[in-house]
Design a binder for these strands. Structure first.
Length: 478
RNA sequence: GGCCCCAUAGUCUAGCGGUUAGGACGUCGGCCUCUCACGCCGAAAUCCCGGGUUCAAGUCCCGGUGGGGUCACCA
């Protein structure tokens, strides 16, 4: 068996490129490079309702932006493709079939409603929720004929009900789980697509992944994965569960409490090398008192022993400081280059100029009018409180802004035409006249009461910055 | 609630049986300076609690407590 180190980052393309993805990608990448191994990108798009190609593209773009390139992936191929799970359905079906034949998995015909009722009952009795094994007890012949009759079903893992499952974690040692406490996980959904559990095990094995470096939130499902490896007769990879990035209140980092999209960091003018350095500071210590180090230097000194397990709070303030260190190190020419690649590109100018063109009398009025396009966070002074509609109060306005931020999060394709109906529908939903709603929103997003049309403005500023400003404004109003 | 993980200042961390518990962000004060920023100097602030083990415990063990994760036909 080959001893080559092969690791992967396996994002699910269901939203914006997440800072946590970059964080985990970083540790995979660094470990692979340190070992002279391969770093693989695999797209886990088995949730066909939520996965989009647009999101996949954004994730690839963002990972490239932070400088974590892959050796094999959906865009460049490789010896173990395809690297998009939606293109591997047949592989999962075959493997699932193997499990059914060996008795390690069984078809389950229970309807959603029954499962919900079951869970509700378990909750009421304060028992741990989980499948009750009804279909597991079905006669195998009967089950087979139901399947043959095309009855709608899923495939479940026939989890052993006795004994224990041991997980070897490279960071935490041996983790022991009582099998009786582990649920009969669904492996194959009724739409024929695999769940994460099946797909991830099958792919990791087929793609010869040697080390699984992933977030701590996966620990509790790892025994299921270990059971699957055993059922297939495969050797499990080594697991390394990294701590979770946290909000200031220590909960798992989330977009409600933190800018979480890599797009936000790019749009706000963070340098990718600073962001990567900062992510490296989360849970990893370089050695000595060094805090500033390059990716290459991190690779050189990387060692799992230097990884700590407490969940690190993601502190934008410290990231900004680090970013300043990098920024000041650049030459003037380099800064100009960075600015051009940021918001002073011809492309950005081409988007901004039409919006302020007719509002300008002289060229010198350009800069003040595009001010909010070029900023990260805004300074509002009293503008926000002044924008509270008559008949409404600060608290209500704050809530509206936050709710709108959430609403906008669901907007997939961000442009003036898609934004307008969303915001208008929102206005109706909350029972505010558009007249009442638009001014506080305008102020929150631009900081001023006179600006180009709202939706065009939002379009250029970008989703993440818009959402961030709405949230920040709400914060200030409270 | 069950299961699991974690625990050094507000935050990120060093420490791997004997240290005045080190560094960084942030905060406060000062210096530099036309202002600001940068830079420099300084200050306040930490070993969650209780038992063990040991001559000696932030460090090892156990138990609490606290925080977190997870309990989906989402990953």
């Amino acid at each position: 068996m080959s001893t080559e180190v092969r690791v992967r980052i396996a994002p699910s393309p269901t939203g914006d490129p997440h800072v946590g993805t970059a964080y985990i990608a970083l540790f995979n990448y660094v470990f692979a490079k340190k070992q002279g191994g391969k770093f693989i990108l695999r797209i886990e798009d088995t949730d066909r309702a939520r996965s989009t190609l647009e999101s996949e593209e954004a994730i690839l773009r963002a990972l490239k932006w932070v400088g974590l390139g892959w050796d094999e992936g959906p865009d460049i191929g490789g010896a173990y493709g395809p690297y998009r799970q939606s293109e591997r359905s047949a592989i999962y079906q075959e493997h699932a079939q193997l499990l059914v034949e060996s008795g390690a998995a069984y078809p389950c015909f229970c309807a959603e409603a029954r499962l919900e009722a079951l869970r509700a009952a378990q909750r009421a009795e304060k028992k741990p929720p989980g499948y009750d094994g009804l279909c597991r007890r079905l006669d195998r012949g009967e089950a087979r004929s139901k399947v043959a009759a095309k009855e709608k079903h899923v495939l479940r893992l026939a989890m052993p009900k006795e004994g224990e499952t041991k997980v070897q974690d490279g960071l935490r040692g041996e983790l022991v789980f009582q099998n009786a406490t582990i649920d009969d996980q669904v492996l194959l959904k009724s739409d024929g697509f695999p769940t994460y559990h099946l797909a991830n095990v099958v792919d990791d094995h087929l793609m010869k992944i040697s080390h699984v470096v992933r977030a701590e939130e996966w620990i509790s499902s790892t025994p299921k994965h270990v059971q699957l490896y055993q059922a297939f007769g495969w050797q499990a990879p080594e697991f390394f569960h990294m701590p979770l990035l946290r909000n200031a209140d220590k909960s798992k980092i989330s977009k409600r409490k933190n800018p979480v999209s890599l797009d936000y960091y790019q749009d706000s003018g963070f340098l990718p090398e600073a962001l990567v350095n900062f992510l490296g500071l989360m849970g990893f210590s370089f050695g000595g008192d060094r805090e500033k180090f390059t990716l290459a230097e991190m690779i050189e000194t990387f060692d799992w022993q230097k990884v700590s397990l407490g969940g690190p709070v993601f502190d934008l303030e410290k990231l900004s400081w680090l970013n300043g260190l990098y920024l000041r190190e650049l030459s003037t020419a380099q800064v100009i280059e960075r600015l051009r690649n940021w918001r002073l590109s011809d492309e950005m100018l081409a988007r901004m100029v039409p919006l302020v063109h007719e509002r300008m009398r002289r060229l010198d009025e350009f800069i003040p009018q595009v001010d909010f396009f070029l900023r990260g966070d805004l300074a509002y002074g009293s503008a926000l409180t002044d924008a509270i509609p008559k008949e409404r109060d600060a608290a209500a306005t704050a809530k509206v802004l936050v709710d709108l931020a959430d609403e906008l999060d669901n907007v997939r394709s961000w442009n003036p035409q898609t934004l307008e109906p969303v915001v208008r529908a929102f206005s109706e939903k909350i029972g505010w006249k558009t007249k009442e709603l638009f001014m506080p929103v305008r102020i929150a997003i631009t900081g001023v009461s006179a600006s180009p049309p709202l939706f065009d403005t939002m379009n250029v500023i970008g989703k993440e910055l818009v959402r961030r400003r709405l949230r920040q404004s709400a914060q200030l109003l409270r």
